[in-house]
Computed example of a mutant assay.
Amino acid sequence: MPLPSVATMALPTRTAPHPSTLVTLWRSSVGKKAVMAVSGLLMLLYLVAHMLGNLKVFFGPRDIDGYAHWLRTLGEPVLHYGWFLWLARFVLLAAVLAHGTAAYQLSRRDRRARPQQYVHRRQRPSYATRTMRWGGVILGLFIVWHILDLTTLTVNPAAEEGHPYRNVVASFSTWYGGGIYVVAMLALGLHIRHGFWSAAQTLGANNPRRDRALKAVANATALLLTAGFLSVPVAVMTGVVR
């Protein structure tokens, strides 16, 4: 009996590797919304801590300068001087990039999924959608400005390394420095208000019995953070802090 030739022998078929669970989750709309919710909550916690630190400006240069120095010594002696701040910045940057990427991809996916009838009669986006979209753009641009202003001290007119109080006063003493900050913080308040509610829906925290309470928490959180952040530039521009 003749043996089969190599050409006629059945070769084992290769199956394509299945994507990991995390990749599958990221590719889904539900996964992207979950990433937005978790990264948004992480950034919200940072904003609360950041606002409380900013309010030390009302206690004078010694308090806020000492607070800034303390942040750089966190983790010692395990971490070197300033390492904690850089680790926090990298985590925050990752959260911002994940949040923005998921939001952009969801927006593109939503546009592709629109029915054909909207080609000639486009459905207008809701107020919340417009607020989240443009608020995100404003905040993204503000983050770049804020880093150049009070982190790298590139655009600050009278910046001096190691003197946060003096740098804050110098920044908000200009009409454009204070104005940019005020506009960005108003956008932040609206973004938090709608984002908090959206994150609660994504994470399944909302239900008919808790909706009113969650909306109240969202409104209160947005109002307190906005007022807290705005109090510093307003105090500088009105001469309360100088």
Rank of each mutant, 00 (worst) to 15 (best):
K32V: 00
L44A: 08
T101G: 05
L190A: 14
L139N: 02
E160V: 14
H163G: 02
T221Q: 09
G135D: 01
G189L: 03
R130L: 10
T129C: 03
Y127S: 13
G66M: 03
W83H: 07
P2V: 00
V168T: 12
T154F: 13
G66Q: 06
V119M: 10
G178H: 04
L141A: 13
R124C: 01
M36A: 01
A7N: 12
G228Q: 04
T15N: 03
S173T: 10
P157D: 08
V232A: 04
G31S: 04
V183I: 13
L214P: 06
T221C: 15
G31A: 03
S126Y: 08
L42C: 09
A10H: 01
I180K: 07
V91Q: 08
D63M: 13
W145R: 07
Y81W: 10
L153V: 10
R130N: 05
S39V: 00
D149N: 14
G179M: 06
L186W: 09
E76S: 12
A218M: 09
E76C: 06
S231P: 12
P12C: 00
V182M: 11
H80M: 06
V183S: 06
R112D: 03
F90Q: 11
G195L: 01
H69E: 05
F229C: 02
Y165L: 06
R212Y: 08
Y81F: 14
A16S: 13
T238P: 09
V6D: 10
L41S: 02
T154L: 15
Y181S: 07
P164G: 03
G40T: 01
A213M: 14
E161G: 10
H80L: 08
P2S: 04
D149I: 02
T8S: 11
G204N: 09
S28A: 00
R112T: 00
M1S: 13
L93V: 11
A34M: 07
M43N: 06
R209N: 12
P125W: 02
A37T: 01
I64F: 13
I143V: 15
F142D: 07
M9Y: 00
G179D: 05
H80D: 08
S28Q: 01
D211S: 14
F58L: 11
M51Q: 09
G177W: 06
S107P: 02
V23P: 02
Y67M: 07
R111T: 02
K32E: 01
A16T: 10
R109C: 00
A102P: 00
H120Q: 14
R108W: 06
G66A: 05
G239T: 07
